[in-house]
Design a protein around this nucleic acid. Sequence first.
DNA 1: CGAGGCGTTGAATCCCATCAAGAAATGTGG
DNA 2: CCACATTTCTTGATGGGATTCAACGCCTCG
Lengths: 237, 237
Amino acid sequence: MSAIGSLRVVSEARPCDEDGLRALFLRQPGETAEPGAALFFEGDPACHVFHLISGNVRVCRFLPDGHRFIIGFLCAGDLVGLSFRSRYMFGAEAIDRVAFRRMNKRLFEEELQLAPEHRSQMLSHLRDEITASQDHMLLLSQKNAEERVCTFLLDRLDRTGTPGIVSLPMIRSDIADYLGMTIETVSRTLTKLVLKGIILPAEKHHFRVVSRSALARHANEANENDDHKGEAQRLLR
Amino acid sequence: MSAIGSLRVVSEARPCDEDGLRALFLRQPGETAEPGAALFFEGDPACHVFHLISGNVRVCRFLPDGHRFIIGFLCAGDLVGLSFRSRYMFGAEAIDRVAFRRMNKRLFEEELQLAPEHRSQMLSHLRDEITASQDHMLLLSQKNAEERVCTFLLDRLDRTGTPGIVSLPMIRSDIADYLGMTIETVSRTLTKLVLKGIILPAEKHHFRVVSRSALARHANEANENDDHKGEAQRLLR
DNA sequence: CGAGGCGTTGAATCCCATCAAGAAATGTGG
DNA sequence: CCACATTTCTTGATGGGATTCAACGCCTCG
């Protein structure tokens, strides 16, 4: 639980399958995007695949009534653009200063032809996206405000480099549009968790997690390692 | 809008990419499942890929608290099982009498090796699953009861063979668990749509759609062909 | 300093879930 | 075919959790 930078375990152990894919980008020049800038827009011709070097990106779609939905957040090491046909199905915007490499899709596919072992990595990546989507759907359809926020914090906790600290580089409205709630409810729920002693406000955009297990309990997660660990948590309640 | 059996257009025209994949199943023996029977269970080793010949299947996951979530519904022509690693991430249950073929996954992958053109069809299928998941997330996070039901009806309308008729072979609780609401709200919303004159109750498990465009308007869909048609609808409002 | 974006908190409202009851449909056995 | 049990569907009454509307403090930046 304290391993730094460990991958989030979705459902079974998974040694960094996609490292091979990432290696393809090393020849590409590094680029940067300023906060708020778009890497690409929803609806644009999908001609590049992206690899994030540093920084945070939000991935979003819009409804005709102006509502925004955030599909997810990307950070260092993440790939985006593999799951498109001819057009981007969503937009990607820099949250903070972002460094990335991009690769022409045609070129990317040629490389894939040359190195067939990358095929399975590609599939692997797509399967992960599907799994992530389904977990997200589960959250949206079944969880209440507190469970949503706790789930989100757990997720961020595993992505943040410092143990016991969760970093929220995005603003409240990003979180709200990701969790399917309003900024007010997000704010209220965070306050409630602080009052309950589960998290502590730390520096700007950071919280200290006092009790990971309490967080997990309040998140009502499906498989918080449904082995002995899960049992233990149930008994401790 | 009246073309029978036309594929639902997700975002761009797509000639039946996966027909090649489907052809692989023709050598497999036909099987059937009775209503309520499971094709496979969530958590089981994923050793088969399935191709539906006829009937309807619900695809679902369970939460530790007993809640059920329905990821989607399958019908004739659909494939399922492509997006798994070693275990099924969800279960599949027959809604009515179902005919299908199955294929050992290892065999399936060998066939894929032999016919590399199937690779892209495989990717295509996974991308469709991702798109569907994201549309579903959008529904769950942004839409109210009426919009959800209208979206669902539109979706079913395109899957039903008879123009102007939407078939709902599944029961209310299936719909509820798919749309993230209760059976009561589903029922009330359908009643409301009937009172509004948008749909008419037809035979058991069927509704007649009086006005597709009204349905689309109430669904608040993103891309109801965002060309002139969309404009026209806006003007007609 | 003032403007504007961001975050928090309060009060009122509303949509949907919950609880409850009954109607309609389906199935089963005599 | 009917009586009975069970499941499915609908409708009503009520309450609660989240949204909405509003105000205010904090911070950054020009």
